[in-house]
């Protein structure tokens, strides 16, 4: 038995479905492109670098000052 049931409707709506797929791919491309452009416009990465699931003490100004005073 076929896993996928084909219906005549699938064939009839093929053009619409492909069109919708292309629109969605375009939308993803726009969001990705905007993200890249906006992030790069922030300038030096160090200015907005933050913890990325792993603790990075060197990014914490308070830690640095404490170490310096000892």
């Amino acid at each position: 038995m076929a896993i996928k049931v084909e219906h005549e409707l699938h064939e009839r709506r093929k053009g619409r479905n492909i069109g919708l797929l292309l629109l969605l791919i375009g939308f993803v491309g726009i969001v990705f492109g905007l993200t890249v452009v906006k992030v790069l416009q922030l300038g030096e990465a160090g200015k907005f670098e933050r913890f990325d699931h792993v603790a990075r003490p060197q990014l914490e100004p308070a830690t640095q000052s404490t170490e310096g005073s000892e």
Binding site: E8, R12, R16, G19, L20
Partner: peptide, 11 residues
């Protein structure tokens, strides 16, 4: 019913 209904295209 669907057979007799016009299916709008992307165009």
């Amino acid at each position: 019913l669907q057979d007799t209904t016009y299916e709008a295209s992307m165009g």
